[in-house]
């Protein structure tokens, strides 16, 4: 059994790493839950954003926050354009999964063609910065990520609950035809939401560029666990996605510390199975 300090450190690192899961899960959860579109290209958009932030930073010395200020609005546009395509061709839930999977594979190929399959790392003087709280180390970048993810999750949650647009989206997600008969313009709202989801991929990508080592195939590295997080946090619930992300991050990290790294996915996917068996209406 590892020491209490080690476990505490594992918990902190896990929760902070879970912030990234939550951030990635949020956009996916919004489009799946409220538009019934399973957007696998979300991961590809996040990595494309990461590569662009990397490129701008290493080649032209652009600070990542300025890169983000450019990339995030562009991603919003990409998300809105994706919705246009889905709407134009009446794409259903299953087809959306297959189409966006294909889209992700194409983006992956594009990344590989332009940036090659080599590992890339965006080194900054703050990428390894951390501070100490008692015996524990807290990495600064991951902490910033968690703060950003929390603000986004909370803000999005409130937006869905308190604004006319947010409530209209939830009503239309439940019954688009009825909502329309009460004047809720489902399409206009869907463009907005699809754009927001992709913009979140842009934000996640900015942090990926700073925290992770980039390689084209990494697009798929988080797919499984983020999917589990999306479902555990409940579709369409951004706050749930963040909390589930932190929960899974923490349990993975503890499983790694106590058992071995191979156990990490066992924990999260067991939780997923138990939830789905326990409440079939969870989805």
């Amino acid at each position: 059994m590892p020491s209490a300090t080690l476990l505490g450190q594992a918990l902190i690192s896990g929760v902070l790493a879970g912030g990234m899961y939550g951030l990635l899960a949020m956009g996916l959860s919004l489009s799946w839950g409220l538009l019934r579109l399973v957007n696998l290209s979300h991961f590809a958009l996040a990595f494309l954003s990461a590569y662009i932030v990397y490129e701008l930073g290493t080649k032209y010395g652009v600070a990542p926050w300025w890169s983000a200020a450019m990339v995030v609005p562009v991603m919003f546009g990409v998300g809105a354009a994706q919705y246009w395509l889905f709407d134009r061709f009446h794409v259903n839930e299953l087809a959306s999964l297959l189409i966006t999977f294909s889209f992700a594979v194409i983006v992956e190929a594009g990344i590989q063609i332009y940036w090659t399959a080599d590992y890339r790392r965006f080194e900054t003087h703050y990428s390894t910065l951390s501070f100490k709280v008692g015996p524990f180390f807290v990495p600064v970048l991951e902490l910033v990520l968690c703060v950003v993810a929390s603000v986004l999750a909370w803000g999005t949650w409130m937006w869905l609950r308190k604004t006319y647009v947010g409530k209209g989206l939830r009503a239309a997600a439940e019954d688009a035809d009825i909502a329309a008969a009460y004047g809720v313009d489902h399409r206009k709202l869907a463009y907005l939401l699809s754009g927001i989801g992709a913009a979140y991929a842009g934000i996640a990508g900015t942090f990926i560029a700073l925290i992770a080592t980039l390689a084209p195939a990494q697009i798929w590295a988080w797919l499984g666990v983020v999917f589990a997080v999306v479902i555990i946090g409940r579709l369409g619930n951004p706050l749930g996605a963040l909390l589930a992300g932190m929960l899974i991050g923490a349990s993975e990290s503890l499983a790694m510390a106590v058992l071995s790294p191979a156990w990490a996915p066992v924990v999260s996917f067991s939780v997923l199975i138990v939830i789905l068996l326990w409440d079939p209406e969870w989805l």
Partner: peptide, 24 residues
């Protein structure tokens, strides 16, 4: 202002949200 035979209220919204989501 339509009141459908099946009622079709939004089940996943609160009572108040059912009203405010469509309010003009």
């Amino acid at each position: 202002g339509w009141v459908p035979q099946e009622r079709n209220i939004f089940r996943s919204l609160t009572v108040e949200e059912n009203l405010t989501a469509v309010a003009r």
